[in-house]
Design a protein around this nucleic acid. Structure first.
Lengths: 330, 330
DNA sequence: TTGAAAGCGATACCAC
DNA sequence: GTGGTATCGCTTTCAA
């Protein structure tokens, strides 16, 4: 089923068919309609390879990720795919773990296939993928991973997220706040911490540890046994820590949210939704971030210029029950 | 950088270059070596679009999924990608949610791009994707989703998984077993239940409910308050239920694994690993399943014939601490 | 052993 | 308004 067959069926030339289907060139309306009708009838679909050969556009982009776990990549991916499918663009998925050799293989394969652009995504904004994407013949957009200097990079605004969380606790009347979060070497941790201290006071306590439930438990143990003033509001660096915190509080007979408000970060449904009570948390809008990234590579691929640099997208608060006050302030 | 440039650089014709790089045709060894060397030097890479136009092979396959959550799809995807990258094949990822229209758009886009085959994957073997993949001009392999009759379909062997779990509890000396699992309308639930009863006895209790932690909790509540004999071994239909069960037992002062052994299903790291104690569980080998699926579409795309029908791949036991006995029997 | 030329499926320019 | 033809980058006969 080629354009040739269609031309024969419609008793016109291939060039006429091409023009009819692409809505360009001048021609009789009825000819155009007739050709389109016949195309429909016999189910003609143009070969994208042939088209791409001529136009130098494959309507294809590559997505490179080292997040095999999917926590961050999946929503980002969904956003990219959603944004691009409307433009007839398909997405190559390349999971490269942290293997530079594998990364190179995938990048080469994508370039061979003439991708219109590449989106690199990862797990944290302060680490780069193990593969060099500078000097490529196609545009590159970084999402949630460190880009080359002066590259187009998107990430979520951790400062904003930290602000939202802290502010929410304070609006609910919480005065003694603590921040239990991940390892300090994450820039996202530092950004959120800074936002937290800006609102909660420069001497508000911050506890750094691993990104785990166990650490949430341990942190409560530490705070409750220290003899110091106990907090009435706890801002956690992610939902897993928050879950550990909530469980530990329950085991101590402390009621959430009546006695203490707990707020998480990530809005990882599987954790936030299954915690008792379900977690109020900060959502990083990863899908939206993916959508933006998709539209950006596309714009770049079409030759438009995009302001380079790091763009931080705002977070949003998702209110469930671990802070109380829902219905009151929403 | 086309083959033409390379030909000029090597002072031979394009046809000679082509033959040299593709290792076919007879030619002087030194000519071949020289061309390959120059190709390397100037970094020539053939345009896959042009090549595909001629060969009718795009070295591209499409992956269709409705599992936006990624629980099942991600490992499957990783396996597919891993198996295919070695063959120079790239994977289009299409997340179609449960939207038939979106599904059709993606399938059409893939066909336009001349994919060599399509892999359909989902969340359960007894439901089909909302898109018809029969009568396509390319081979289709189904993984973890219901395929058309006489299609090539892969899934995990739930009966085998149920057998492994029950047997493990029994080998540890557990006598009074209970199975707490998901909704009975899942065929996987029925398969596992059947395997459970085969070993534990036809009147061994099975409790059906939703796939949630909350249900695990509720089931323990139900069992412990029923006055009936209490179990010393609990086989859970997934890790989330198992986690609910373990937490509920702890809250009742029942020690896992000393008093009761609990075994999960899925080996979902994020749940199984963070439970206290970490869950012994059944792994469905999803990555391996993906690898198989990838190799199968590839074989079909190359014209080889593959035995149609449903193939069930074995599960494996992952021993952590929720059953006790590790080190003893491993 | 090497090279010229046809053609894969589509688009676009330029005659008619 | 419609059709012939060159072209995209590569592979593959077939001649030289």
């Amino acid at each position: 089923m080629t354009i040739h067959d269609l031309a024969k069926a419609a008793k016109v030339s291939v060039s006429t068919v091409s023009k009819a289907l692409n809505e360009n060139g001048r021609m009789a309306d009825d000819t155009r309609e007739r050709i389109k009708r016949i195309a429909q009838e016999i189910g003609f679909r143009p070969n994208a390879l042939a088209r791409g050969l001529l136009s130098n556009r494959s309507f294809t982009v590559g997505l490179l990720t080292n997040d095999t776990y999917g926590r961050f990549t999946l929503p980002v991916m969904a956003g990219i795919s959603e944004a691009l499918v409307d433009h007839g663009v398909s997405v190559f998925l390349c999971a490269i773990e942290d293997d530079p050799a594998l990364g190179k293989i995938h990048v080469d394969a994508m370039l061979d296939k003439q991708v219109d652009g590449i989106i690199a995504t990862g797990k944290r904004i302060d680490r780069a993928l193990p593969v060099d994407l500078t000097g490529l013949p196609v545009p590159v957009v970084y999402a949630f991973t460190q880009g080359a200097p002066d590259s187009v990079t998107l990430t979520s605004d951790d400062g904003h997220g930290g602000h939202l969380a802290t502010e929410w606790l304070q609006r609910l009347g919480r005065k003694k706040l603590v921040h239990v979060t991940g390892p300090e070497d994450f820039s996202s941790v530092r950004d959120r911490s800074a936002a937290f201290r800006e609102l909660a006071g420069q001497d508000a306590p911050i506890l750094y540890g691993p990104w785990s439930e166990a650490w949430g438990h341990a942190a409560i143990e530490q705070i409750w046994s220290s003899g110091a003033d106990r907090p009435d509001g706890i801002f956690c660096g992610n939902d897993q820590i928050a879950r550990g915190v909530v469980d530990a509080l329950r085991e101590r007979g402390v009621t959430v949210p009546a006695d203490v408000s707990v707020i998480g970060f990530d809005n990882w449904e599987i954790v936030a939704g299954q915690t008792r009570p379900p977690l109020t948390t900060v959502d990083m809008n990863l899908k939206e971030l993916g959508r933006e990234a998709g539209l950006m590579v596309l714009a770049l691929a079409e030759g438009k210029t995009v302001e380079p640099g790091l763009r931080r997208l705002p977070c949003k608060l998702v209110v469930r029950q671990s802070c109380g006050g829902d219905g009151l302030l929403r």
